[in-house]
């Protein structure tokens, strides 16, 4: 059964990920979280409010968030996107035009809001949950699911994968963070 992940664990993992992306250096900010607030990951966003090491930029749309990520990448600043599945659907053209065609490594952290604890997302009663993984498959975006605290290693792993393939990668947050 999937479990919720504590916000502090995700934030510590992001710090490690950004530090590694900078070759071990620890400037402030270490990196950026580009967010269109996601109910599913709201405890992470709340905890990030108190963080100095990671800067959060709240964007009006997911299109903006992905395009800001491209600017940060060009300027050599590490970042991740923190959005929900509906935002992925809303920003598919930017996923294609910026992350894929621009060969910009962007790690998407996508909250699966309304995902049922006892079902695989592809079997969800909710279309917004059901279509997320098939959409990523259609676009050839590698993805993995964070089903509990033991899976947070997938964050740096998929961050690196995005860098190596020079394109988008995604981790899906299975249950609401705590």
């Amino acid at each position: 059964m999937p479990e919720s992940i504590p916000a502090s664990l995700i934030i510590d993992t992001l710090k490690t990920t950004f530090r590694e992306a900078r070759g071990g250096a620890s400037p402030e900010p270490l990196g950026w979280v580009l967010s269109v607030p996601d109910t599913h990951q709201r405890t992470v966003l709340a905890a990030l409010d108190k963080e100095q090491a990671i800067r959060v930029l709240t964007c009006a749309t997911e299109d903006e968030a992905a395009t800001v990520a491209a600017g940060l990448y060009i300027g050599r600043e590490p970042c991740v996107l923190m959005i929900q599945h509906a935002g992925l659907y809303a920003s598919v053209n930017t996923l294609r035009g910026v992350a894929m065609d621009g060969r910009v490594p962007i790690l998407y952290m996508i909250g699966l809001l309304s995902r049922e604890r006892d079902r695989q997302p592809r079997e969800s009663r909710h279309s917004m949950v059901r279509f997320c993984e098939p959409l990523l498959d259609t676009f050839g975006v590698p993805h993995a699911r964070l089903e509990g605290p033991d899976d947070v290693h997938l964050i740096p792993e998929y961050y690196r994968r995005a860098q190596e393939r020079r394109g988008p990668a995604a981790v899906l947050v299975g249950l609401e963070t705590i």
Binding site: D63, T67, V68, A70, G71, L72, G97
Partner: peptide, 20 residues
Amino acid sequence: VACVGFMGGASALGLGLALA
């Protein structure tokens, strides 16, 4: 860097660069 192929993105691309 020209924003062509994702119309509307110039302002956000510029913001990312300005922050970086």
